[in-house]
Every structure is written in C-alpha cells, then in structure tokens.
C-alpha cells in the first residue's frame, strides 16, 4: 500500500468491496443510458427518454424504482429456491470480474498473477445462473433459452480465451497489471514514447475478443438465448421486479467489465503516454473509463445493427472460423516471440 497511508487489511478490503459495489451499478447505469437508451435511439432516428431529468438521464433510476415496487412473482411450478438464487449467481459473476481489473498502477482490488485466466473463468460462472434460471422457471421458452445459452457460452469461451492468449504470449504475463505495464513499456516500430497498445500487433486477437465477448454477453448477433421474437425473453421470461433488475444489472455490469478487460488487454488500460506515478493513479480511472466507452461503443454498435444468427450457424462460426483463426494467431505470435 501507499507509503503515507497505512490501513489494516480489513479496512482496505472494505473500501475495495464498497468501491466495486458502487462501480457495478454505476457502470451498468452509464452503459445502459449512453448506449441502450441514447445511442440506440439516435441510430433509429428517435430521441429516447427525454422526460426524467435533462435528456432523460434519470430514466433508469425511475425504472429501477419501478422494478423495486413490483410484486415478487414466482411461477406456480417453479423450483423456488433455485429460481430465487439464479439472478444472484449471475450478478455474482459480474461482481467477481471486477476483482482483477486495474484502474491505475496501484488501483486494483487484487493483482492476481493469473488475472486474465481468473476473469475469463469467473465470467463463465454466469452460465450456471442462466441454466438455473431457465430450468427452475418451469417454462418451455426459458428452458430452450437456457440450453442455447449453455451451448453458446461454451462454444465462445474458446475463441475468447484463445484470442487473448496472443496478448498473454506477447506480454509474457497473465497478470492484467503486468499486461498494462508491458504495453506501456513496449516499443512500436522503435518509438518508445507512445508505448505499444496491443490492438495493433494483435488486431486479429482484438476482433476475436470482441466477437467472443459479444457472444458471452448474449448480445445481437449472438442473442439467441434471449431472442425476444423467438423465445420471448429466453431464460428471463418469468422474472419480474427486482429479480429482473438483477439480470439487467448483471447484463450491463458484465458488458462494462468485458469492455474494461478489452481496454486493458488491447488499448493499454489506464496507461496514457507521459503520465507516471501518483498522477497515473488519479488519471487512470478516467483514462480507463474513456477506453471502456470506446470499446463498448463498438460492442453496442454491432448489437443495434445486426440480425442474429441461428444456433447451429453460431456454433459453425465458432468452430469453423473463429477457433482456427485464433490458433493461427497464437502460432504466429509465438513464432514471432521466439524469433524476435
């Protein structure tokens, strides 16, 4: 910890937990407002919510208030315990993602040596919650949605992980903090001052990561588990009130976390050229925030433009194109690493 401030372990832990608990709803709110409400509306040549607050900034708070007031409905034949637990599991996986994301040289909950591995592992925890939700709802649509989700998330975990492996090889570490440092100290074509954001050497990895993240987040074109027009809302069909709010928050919280991981892995995370030390700690969160917005812009841009695949086509895309591409990417990166 810092030289000036000596806090006990429990104190730092409490602060970290509080910050993470604050960041998730905030991140989810910001993403949902900026992209879901505003960007999507303007892409469809409408204005979106305008009444709650200036330009509708308070709309989501009003929605949250509405959700909290709603009756907590359980379907008659639902498995009550599992049904109640499922949204919590999904939200939990979103929370755990934030543990390893660095927002500055020292601003991180826990700088695990296996940071990337940890993040991708806990992100797939949400599948469990989705399966629980789909099964316990006692609804055929939910069940189909949950099974699709399981199949899809397993298929896309692979290109996601393999796409990231290129970065890990190039940085030589699995720690997210280490990857940021490696990008900061890297040299792109001999220029040392700017560092080396891995989006340039790992462009293919970045594309794979975005596609994989899109599928992990079950966003169009990979939103079959939800598929409003086919499965109504997939595994979420039977949820109302604050349990639905949990799913909603988890969806955007995870999107925020994935954008953060993408920004960290490929855009240099909190690093901005020329800023070091304590200044980087102060500036870091803002820089990271801006980069997150950039990555999420792309994620949501695809979401609002494309139609969705069919389940079997999605599997075909993953196994026939993305995974071989990722393997080639790893091969080339490894060869260059050895040669250079």
């Amino acid at each position: 910890m810092t030289a000036a401030l000596h806090l006990a372990y429990w104190q730092t832990t409490t602060i970290k937990v509080l910050v993470v608990m604050g960041v998730i709803p905030l991140g989810a709110l910001v993403l949902a407002y900026v992209f879901l409400l505003k960007m999507m509306s303007h892409m469809q040549s409408r204005l979106g919510p305008m009444e709650a607050g200036p330009h509708g900034v308070l709309q989501l708070l009003a929605d949250a208030g509405k959700f909290l007031q709603k009756e907590d409905v359980f379907p008659e034949r639902a498995d009550r315990a599992v049904f109640a637990l499922a949204p919590v599991v999904v939200l939990m996986s979103a929370f755990l993602l934030y543990v390893v994301i660095p927002a500055g040289p020292r601003l991180t909950v826990s700088n695990l040596d296996t940071g990337v591995f940890f993040a991708l592992a806990v992100s797939s925890l949400s599948v469990l919650g989705v399966l629980m939700a789909g099964w316990s709802s006692a609804n055929k649509y939910s069940l189909i949605g949950a099974l699709r989700a399981a199949g899809q998330l397993i298929a896309y975990e692979l290109p996601l992980v393999l796409g990231v492996v290129g970065v890990v090889i190039q940085a030589g570490t699995m720690s997210l903090q280490g990857i940021v440092q490696a990008q900061a100290h890297g040299a792109l074509l001999g220029f040392k001052t700017l560092g080396e954001p891995y989006i340039l050497p790992q462009a293919l990895g970045f594309v794979l990561f975005i596609v994989g993240a899109q599928a992990e987040l079950t966003q169009t074109p990979f939103d079959m588990p939800l598929a409003e027009t086919e499965l109504v809302a997939g595994y979420m069909v039977e949820y109302t009130g604050f349990r639905f709010l949990f799913f909603f928050m988890a969806e955007f919280g995870t999107a925020f976390a994935f954008a953060a991981i993408g920004a960290t892995l490929f855009l240099g995370g909190w690093y901005v050229p020329g800023v070091h030390g304590t200044a980087a700690d102060v500036l870091g969160p803002f820089v990271l925030g801006a980069k997150i917005m950039l990555v999420s812009f792309f994620i949501f841009w695809f979401r609002f433009t494309y139609p969705r695949f069919r389940e079997d086509q999605l599997q075909a895309v993953a196994w026939k194109y993305l995974i071989p591409l990722a393997l080639v990417n790893i091969l080339v990166t490894g060869l260059l690493k050895v040669v250079v």
Partner: peptide, 16 residues
C-alpha cells in the same frame, strides 16, 4: 422482417 431476425433498427426506419 429485421426485427423477427433480431435486428432492432430496420423497423424504426420503416415506421419513420
């Protein structure tokens, strides 16, 4: 048709 296939945007253009 776009909406049924998951693309939300075309239908708003159609309405417009």
């Amino acid at each position: 048709m776009g909406v049924q296939l998951g693309a939300l945007t075309p239908v708003f253009y159609a309405f417009r």
